[in-house]
């Protein structure tokens, strides 16, 4: 059996691929692209919510939001560690993010304008991410699958705290309810875009499915999210942003309106409200941390040379 045949045998048998196993170059490249993009999304995703920590309406909400943003940082770390098992370094990853060769989820290029957005982001953006991540718990690359299992477990509170904000606002004053509706309207469609282009348009989908990097298609995952969200909007007593939404008895799913793909590609290609701001902020934070990294290296070197002298 050639290494390639052995690899495909494992994939087809549903076995995981582990870091030291032989794998095709394109499998490795594909994983590096997807996992690093996923990790970058966690890291950049800290910005829109981090922006509201100091303005949270109560100490309770502040503690919750702070914990959520801490989680995103931790999840970025899990994913960077998983992708590093494929032979790429942290410095290369950060460089790719900052120069734009690596992408992150487009949703984070939308600004978080109101407190209602903290509700909508937790509920819809994390909700969509969870649908995707639950599916990825069965991805073929071992370290990625294990990171997903841990992340899903930790993230279960993210969506619930967002929805709780929405419940509070939608049961509040007319102005609060309007704020909830406005946040829903602005984040609903971008949340649907998070699943990526239609399967027929997706550049990486077919091969990722064959290699079981992805286990369900973009369109199937999106449908799941659309279906689960209908009841949630109804319970809030808000208006559904999709006027074409209709239950399809035959399919057993909701039919829904077409996504504005021009907007999707426009934001991916750098023209969203906050693309430049997000990367500039990342670069600035990274540069401002340089002295800390330098100090850590100096301390390590000092300890090493002390050890050598003692020996």
């Amino acid at each position: 059996m050639t290494p390639e045949e052995n690899f495909m045998r494992k994939i087809e048998a549903g076995e995981k691929i582990e870091p030291k196993d032989w794998m095709p170059d394109d499998y490795r490249k594909n994983l590096i692209r997807q996992i690093s993009q996923h990790g970058h999304s966690e890291i950049i995703g800290m910005q829109p919510e981090g922006n509201w920590i100091t303005r949270a309406p109560s100490l309770r909400r502040k503690g919750i939001l702070l914990s959520k943003v801490q989680d995103e940082g931790g999840h970025g770390l899990y994913l960077y560690s998983a992708v590093e098992t494929l032979g790429i370094s942290r410095n290369e990853l950060i460089e790719a993010l900052q120069t734009g060769t690596a992408k992150y989820a487009s949703i984070f290029n939308y600004p978080a304008q109101t407190w209602g957005d903290m509700g909508a982001i937790g509920w819809l953006v994390d909700g969509a991410a969870i649908v995707n991540q639950v599916s990825l718990q069965r991805t073929s690359y071992g370290p990625y699958a294990r990171a997903m299992i841990r992340i899903c477990k930790e993230e279960s509170f993210h969506q619930r705290q967002g929805y709780e904000i929405m419940v509070t606002l939608s049961r509040g004053s007319a102005a609060q309810k309007a704020m909830a509706q406005d946040s829903l309207n602005r984040f609903y469609w971008p949340a649907l875009m998070m699943f990526g282009p239609h399967d027929s348009e997706s550049a990486h989908s077919a091969r990722s499915m064959k290699w079981k990097i992805k286990r369900e298609t973009n369109d199937d995952l999106r449908q799941k999210f659309v279906d689960q969200t209908v009841k949630q909007i109804e319970v809030l007593g808000l208006e559904h942003p999709d006027k074409d939404l209709k239950w399809n008895e035959e399919r057993g799913h909701y039919d829904f309106g077409e996504i504005d793909w021009d907007e999707f590609y426009n934001v991916i290609n750098g023209n969203g409200h906050a693309n430049r701001q997000r990367i500039e902020h990342h670069v600035r934070a990274h540069e401002e941390g340089e002295w800390v990294r330098e100090a850590m290296h100096a301390y390590r070197d000092k300890k090493r040379s002390a050890k050598q002298q003692a020996a």
């Binding site: 503690g63 914990s67 619930r160 705290q161 929805y163 709780e164 419940v167």
Partner: peptide, 11 residues
Amino acid sequence: KPYRHAMYYEL
């Protein structure tokens, strides 16, 4: 920090 757990939130 009980709010780090999903069941903290009553929906």
